[in-house]
Design a protein around this nucleic acid. Structure first.
Lengths: 194, 194
DNA sequence: CAAAAAAGTTAATCCGGTTTAACCGCTTTT
DNA sequence: AAAAGCGGTTAAACCGGATTAACTTTTTTG
């Protein structure tokens, strides 16, 4: 039972590791504590790490020319987060990734990930499956964002990720769901009444 | 120079294959010709194949309860397409995948793909990178769909994939861009004027 | 603990894009 | 060659959700 047991469990959903492989893997990781409101990725800097959340809550978001925030991803305990586009292409980020709560993270650097693939090729499989699932999730979200009303999107979130509604402030939820805080407030209110 | 040379080139962007590996790979593929308007995936049937387009044009789309079509993906020569969610989880599809032109496809079945991973683990890497890029592309599209106006989305498409505007009919483009054909028509018209 | 800043609510007004509907080519079918 | 069907255009009426703005509540900070 170490500080790495949760990430090893997470990885073990898709691949099986020997003790030696586990050790090699964890030797390439670093533990990072961040405080609420701290950024781990900022636009124009290359995203250096793939990040796993041991405990806490983070979000990634984009800021448009008009200053409006668009939340791309929400993540809590046992989820992964990053500006993946920046990370995989090792190019400047376009997103912020910000801690919404004080959090404990486990990170792997791009260099170490490449080394990991060489030494334990199984991880190609892990991240393949992980990326495929991620792509499916984003696609579903896109489909919802273009085909459902604001109210339906809110209801879906209530049903699928009720924990998120507790842990993220309203303005974050609203920007994740693609609506204004005012409109979200109206929806919540008329659901209480109606 | 075989019927498989284009797919091998495509795969060789990310991994290097020996002659034997190439042969093993192509032995697991099948070639499929489809005519315009034919479906290769339909809702409720499990998507059996990952599909590479040698030549032609296809699209995947979702039909809402109201009967409205939402185009998820457009693909032409040298692109991959599927209902990936259905394929990777081997669960019933929610999308249609339809040929927009007479097309020549190369397909790998789910079973054969698993066998390929066993015999040539490099393909884990290929599909990892492929999925990561796919996820990045969908994410960008989602960001555009929530943060840009209909006109900006059309202009972006004009800039990024001008070929698509030639090969897909207007109503497909409109549903890909998340607007009505009427509104797309208006945009195109007022851009001509001025 | 007070003051200031951030988060959330409520309501009036406004607008980007949909809906509805009529019409015009072009293909396809018979 | 007529009929039918599909893809595309145009325009009026309409609506979901944004904008603006004033206010209340909660959280953060000195």
């Amino acid at each position: 039972m170490t500080e790495f047991s949760s990430i090893i469990q997470n990885v073990s959903r898709f691949i099986t590791l020997t003790k030696e492989e586990e050790q090699l893997f964890t030797s390439l990781l670093r533990i990072q504590k961040v405080r609420k409101k701290q950024f781990i990725v900022q636009p124009e800097y290359v995203c250096q790490y793939r990040t796993y959340i041991t405990t806490g809550a983070l979000r990634s978001y984009f800021v448009g020319n008009d200053g409006q925030e668009y939340t791309i991803a929400l993540a809590i305990d046992d989820w992964w987060i990053s500006d993946f586009t920046s990370y995989i292409n090792q190019e400047p980020a376009t997103l912020f990734v910000e801690a919404v709560e004080n959090s404990t993270l486990i990170q792997i650097s791009y260099q170490n990930e490449q080394m990991l693939y060489e030494k334990v090729p199984k991880f190609e499989r892990f991240f393949r499956i992980h990326s495929q699932r991620g792509a499916a999730a984003i696609q579903k979200r896109m489909l919802w964002s273009i085909s459902k009303t604001a109210e339906e999107r809110y209801e879906e979130m209530q049903k699928t990720y009720p924990q998120f509604l507790q842990r993220f402030p309203q303005y974050v939820i609203a920007s994740y769901l693609g609506m204004t805080t005012q409109f979200l407030s109206r929806i919540r209110n008329q659901k209480l009444k109606g």
